[in-house]
Design a protein around this nucleic acid. Structure first.
Lengths: 341, 341
DNA sequence: TTGTATGCGTTATCAT
DNA sequence: ATGATAACGCATACAA
């Protein structure tokens, strides 16, 4: 048999099309008894709405904004490119998107940007911003204005965001720890470098990494995190110093951006070949380093998946539709030289 | 501005709706000059067809069949479940699917099943069957009848299939080889077990595995493949024998199904803890073994992705729409204890 | 060769 | 409180 339509429901319930629509969309002005009749018919026939037909009739347009960090980051650049690509493809039918890059230096600037979003012309936003109380308030404000909010890549756990699309940072750190422990051929020290430990992501990755190293690989010791605050020169200096002073160094865990500078610094010490390097995020830099055996493994999240997921989730949230969790779960990918696509 | 519709094109070109439709769908009976006018208007306004509206008007129904191997295989079972799930979800709007399990023992039975497909009631098929000349002929026949054919998981490279959805087996084998080489802590021998080496997949995985081991890890030696033809007893016997005779054994590469029997056999020898075991495909068995540190890594393909991909590709093929390659590329996933979802 | 009119499943406007 | 009817963007049977 064919899928039942609103017409079938109307006939079955003995009411008009308009009434069926009122009930289906929970509009006011229908007697309880009539509502019950319609709902019974819906249940009996197993009606499910054809979203596309509905969107056609509504001339539905989804309008979303993506708020991403500004500044030099290959990861954010590839993410932005992936969003553009998903948008350009058929995946993004009936949707309009806008990508906004905000400087991260000052939390107030972020909030100002969030609050300047034209909420009357927007159905949803995807946010990739650091966690601060002000940002959480801004999320509350956006939700109050009735727009859907998803966090992308890094979560805002105690905010009112509707959904998080990204990976669990502790698990990502644990994965890095496991690989480091298994790859390294002798006991020794592991250097952990990060652009900044102020972000929740970095802290969580570090936590997971340390958990696994200390619990499962007790011949390894992790050194305190080295931060370099977007300053390649600083990174080079610190790395040169650590290498010189720590003959027992066997591995380097690079927790975030700045892989290019890190690798340059390591190359200059001439010790790169002896060290197990594990980094985050696939970029031209890390890809090349994998191929050339300079980096042993890269922990990544697929930016294509992230973007398509964000679009699907935002659309479903806008329509109050359920989210197909299995499809939206972002996996912690392990990339080595041989499985690069 | 709003997206242009067929009405806009008609107005712009000074023709009727029907003529626009004829041109857009390349139907006969339009003067070259008129065709040109319409195409110019299409180009000028940047028209792109609304597939959903088109499908609505056509009452389009996609009818697909999935042909999968019969017999005990956790992988095929989870794949079938994933197909059912994708089907049940909104992903499969306007589509009807049918899953057919065929016994693999006799190639003729497979072909008989393929040829008995009601091609007049079918828009496409997804095939996961071993490669034989007869199967290739059957694919040609299906194509001749005008239905779309995709291969799933294992390819039929010299057939007329429209698309392959799955991973490169050589690369998967290479990935396993790289992990084996890096995980193993001393030189020695590696056992390779497979249900059967008659399939292209097994051969290719073995090839990739050996390439990497011999080229990059010359302290390791791979032993000849051990086949067990769905016979757990046989597997146990062989494994016990190898373990007894090969004190230098440091790793086991399980290339396909039968992981449960393989692990049982290894457990019984009491040597499981010393060996690096790498297996294929995530199942309750391999998942548990990962968690318990019995298996070091699992090479997998995401069955959810495989099924959704197959559905999307089959739909696009049926509509002569382009395929969004980036989204359909199936990654070779590396799963360890810490990144299991 | 080209145009008109109608319908797909849903929503929305206007009556009743 | 309920119903008739016209859209939405596209396809198609039937006329011209």
């Amino acid at each position: 048999m064919n899928k039942p339509t609103v017409h079938d429901i109307a006939k079955e319930a003995g009411v008009s099309l308009a009434t069926v629509d009122r009930v289906l969309n929970a509009r006011a002005g229908v007697r309880d008894k009539t509502i019950a009749k319609v709902q019974a018919a819906v249940a009996r026939l197993g009606y499910v709405r054809d979203t596309y037909a509905a969107n056609l009739a509504k001339k539905r347009q989804y309008r979303f904004a993506f708020v991403l960090p500004e500044g030099p980051s290959q990861f954010v650049d590839t993410l932005a490119a992936a969003i553009e690509e998903a948008y350009a493809s058929q995946v993004a039918d009936r949707t309009l998107i806008e990508i906004i890059r905000v400087p991260l230096l000052d939390p107030h600037v972020i909030v100002r940007n969030l609050l300047s979003l034209q909420t009357d012309r927007l159905d949803g936003v995807a946010l990739m911003v650091p966690e601060t109380p002000q940002v959480r308030d801004a999320v509350a404000r956006l939700k109050h204005e009735g727009i859907s909010v998803v966090t992308l890549v890094s979560d805002l756990p105690n905010s009112q965001r509707d959904y998080f699309i990204g990976t669990n940072s502790v698990a990502a750190g644990r994965t890095a720890g496991l690989l480091m422990g298994r790859f390294v051929r002798r006991g020794g020290e592991v250097l952990v470098v990060s652009n900044s430990m102020r972000s929740r992501d970095s802290l969580e990755r570090r936590l997971g990494f340390d958990e696994v190293i200390s619990f499962d690989f007790n011949t390894l010791t992790t050194l305190p995190s080295v931060e370099f605050f977007d300053d390649p020169a600083r990174m080079e200096g610190v790395i040169a110093e650590v290498i010189a002073r720590r003959p027992d160094l066997v591995g380097v865990y690079s927790m975030g951006s700045g892989n290019k500078a890190m690798l340059n610094a390591l190359r200059r010490t001439g010790r790169l070949g002896d060290l197990v390097v594990i980094a985050h995020e696939l970029s031209p830099t890390t890809r090349k380093a994998l191929v050339e055996n300079e980096v042993a493994a890269v922990i990544a999240q697929n930016v294509g998946h992230l973007s398509r997921s964000a679009l699907r989730v935002l659309r479903n949230l806008s329509d109050n539709l359920p989210i197909y969790e299995a499809q939206e779960r972002v996996r912690i990918e392990i990339l080595v030289r041989e499985n690069l696509v």
